[in-house]
Design a binder for these strands. Structure first.
Lengths: 145, 145
DNA sequence: TATTGACTTAAAGTTAACTTTAAGTTGTAG
DNA sequence: CTACAACTTAAAGTTAACTTTAAGTCAATA
């Protein structure tokens, strides 16, 4: 199957101009053109776009994604570098997820804080809250508003 | 203890101008001033800055953080809205973490892909790779480059 | 009291990642 | 063959979140 930029955009839930922008930035060297100059996306290009999406969603810049794609186009001589880039991005994601978990922990505490305040009708309930009435997992947040 | 903007910035590992920018945007209405106009950060302000950091790191815009802080300054009449905002942000983070896990799964597959290619000296090893030699958790990525 | 480093504000500048616009071309349906 | 929707590029515009600059002020130390 062959798709136009608009059809491909719809499939990937991005705009056509985003795909054109990626192409302009050199992220899509694998996309072929018709005689008239129209982009022709192939089914296998979806795999490329999914890895681009993955790198983008995990915070890699367009410039660095281009570098990775360039390495891919170079072929087997760049396997080492491609592996290094992906490993490094994986480590980045692991760090991001740890940080996310910490943020989630804090938001869970805040939810408990406001649920408790809501029941009491006032945040003042926390001023004279006894530590034993605070769930253990939230102790580290005490003395926070 | 009282801290200047520079001291507070160092503690939080941000620049002083970032804190001034947040203040200008209305995120720090709780920060007091000296007679001469200098910002005076108190120890309890660190709690405020940590929740701001949490909201920011989980993708909330400055504008929406300001709205939350404004609700906080309003007092008990806004407990409901504060709870709703925090619950919604928690849900957002849970979604973000699920997506992150999917990205991590894909990066793990790519690592395996390049490790295998590296051992073989060529990516062509994947062209005639038998499914039984691909770890089960990676089967969903087959037919991807 | 003079120096000096850190502070103050307002305003302009930066950056990334798009998005929009304008002018023109392609390709399909009737 | 004509319409016309969707494509093309180049260039300008947008947005968020800072960052930098400039001109001046504060406050701690010698």
């Amino acid at each position: 199957m062959i798709y136009t930029v608009g059809e491909m955009a719809k499939q990937l839930d991005v705009t056509a101009s985003t795909l054109r922008y990626y192409d302009k930035e050199g992220l899509l060297p694998f996309v072929e053109r018709s005689n008239g100059g129209m982009r022709m996306f192939k089914d296998e290009d979806i795999s490329w776009l999914k890895i681009i999406e993955c790198l983008k969603k995990t915070g890699m810049s367009i410039k660095d994604i281009k570098h990775f794609i360039d390495c891919c186009m170079e072929g087997d001589s760049k396997i080492d570098e491609r592996l290094t880039i992906i490993e490094s991005q994986r480590d980045t994601v692991i760090k991001q997820m740890k940080e996310m978990q910490e943020m989630l922990d804090m938001l869970n505490y805040k939810c408990w804080y406001y649920e408790t305040a809501k029941k009491a009708g006032t945040c003042a309930v926390h001023d004279d809250m006894q530590v034993k009435n605070v769930p253990k997992e939230y102790h580290k947040y005490l003395n926070q508003k």
